[in-house]
Amino acid sequence: MIIGTVKEIKNHEYRVGLTPESVHEFTARGHEVIVEAGAGEGIGASDDQYLKAGATLVSTAAEVFAKAEMVVKVKEPQPVERAMLRKGQILYTYLHLAPDPEQTRDLMASGAVCIAYETVTDAQGGLPLLKPMSQVAGRMSVQAGATALEKAHGGRGVLLGGVPGVLPAKVVVIGGGVVGFNAAQMAAGLGADVTILDRSPEVLERLGMYFEARAKTRFSSRASLAEEVAAADLVIGAVLVAGAAAPKLVTRDMLKTMRKGAVLVDVAIDQGGCFETSHATTHAEPTYVVDDIVHYCVANMPGAVARTSTYALNSVTLPHALRIAEHGWKKALQNDPHLLAGLNVWDGKVTYQAVAEGLGLEHVPAEKIFG
């Protein structure tokens, strides 16, 4: 198979779909890999390293899209990239389609086979290709929130861990999954006063056993959420409904109850955000203010730590990519129901139910591709 990867063009996105080491895994098995020149610059991977791994370098993304049977990326294809997709071509990347009707329409029109990292499952019911980026984003959310709390960045001027004689910041984490756990771990490690909200008794029990006295847990109801948000210095939205748009849990009315200069970090922004006042921002302009509350809603947060993120991502995406290359996409999906769960768009049809429902489109079950 001919596999291609391109330089990401989303604002301040420095990750790359394939590392030189991943390229070597393909070429060692007899596959051809085409890499756009400069694709690995953001992670410190030179063109020479890709050449030594057996890749063929080309000067433009258009050449990659024209020749590759499977394009491996990190972020969702931008409009200029979507225009280069063709019928039957495999796109393997993060898509986050539920809040993005324009992208969904373009992918349907292309006729491409679109496999989304974020909906591939595992035997335990987890999302293994999303997990490493959720770990990164969860940890980064605390760094970003701590910076936004500084007075020079519009925040309250509060140090997360406080100092002797001064109370630490109150951090509220909404959602106790992978993002929430990692956010709470970082915040508690810095000495903040941490409360984690979730609706699952099993999740709350697990978090309680792990954190013991270092963080509090609380069942998430409308009343408890409103109470915790009103008292918070930093609120981290870590809610995920796999493949679907995130629920709007923090309303604009709640902002009026918060302290001036408090910070909201919406890690769910890729799926539309879990705060009513959220809209996607970039690393170039990461924050904005609504009703005196600082919002940090960067949609590609892990891109800021590109090297760590890329190697973590490749470690989980590569095995599936190799199977697709070895067996072809149809047989690879037929043999693996967890990879099949990653199929979002095929031959102009939406095959992931939550995306179809969220956008009011017809859902064609992925199993129908096998006749």
Rank of each mutant, 00 (worst) to 15 (best):
G328W: 02
G138M: 04
E228F: 02
A116I: 04
Y352G: 07
M1H: 14
A62N: 13
L160K: 15
A354Y: 02
A183D: 05
D100W: 02
K87Q: 13
V120R: 06
M108G: 01
H96L: 10
V120Y: 05
V6C: 10
V235Q: 02
A45D: 12
I34D: 09
Q334M: 11
Q124M: 10
P168M: 10
Q124H: 13
M70Y: 02
V6I: 14
V316L: 02
A284S: 12
D347A: 11
T195N: 01
Y288W: 08
L343C: 06
T195P: 03
N344T: 03
T121W: 00
A242N: 08
H31V: 11
R259T: 15
L51N: 03
V113L: 11
G273C: 07
E276W: 02
V71N: 03
W346V: 14
M254N: 03
E228G: 07
A354R: 14
V263W: 01
L255C: 01
D253G: 14
Q89F: 07
E150R: 15
Q124N: 11
N314G: 13
V158K: 15
R199G: 11
E41A: 15
E202P: 00
L339E: 01
G189T: 08
L249D: 07
T56A: 10
D106W: 00
M84V: 05
N182P: 03
A280R: 13
I196R: 08
G360M: 07
V35C: 07
L343S: 08
A231N: 14
T310L: 05
V158F: 02
P164A: 15
E102Q: 13
L159P: 06
H338W: 05
E362V: 11
L318A: 02
V250K: 02
L313R: 11
I3W: 04
S141M: 03
V263E: 01
L197E: 04
R214Y: 08
A245I: 11
G161Q: 07
L91K: 05
D291F: 03
Q49F: 00
L190S: 08
S220C: 11
V35N: 09
H295P: 05
L57D: 11
A332G: 06
M108W: 00
A232C: 06
K170E: 08
P365W: 04
M254V: 01
Q353R: 15
G157N: 14
A53R: 01
L197C: 10
I43F: 05
D292S: 11
V158I: 15
V239I: 13
Q103P: 00
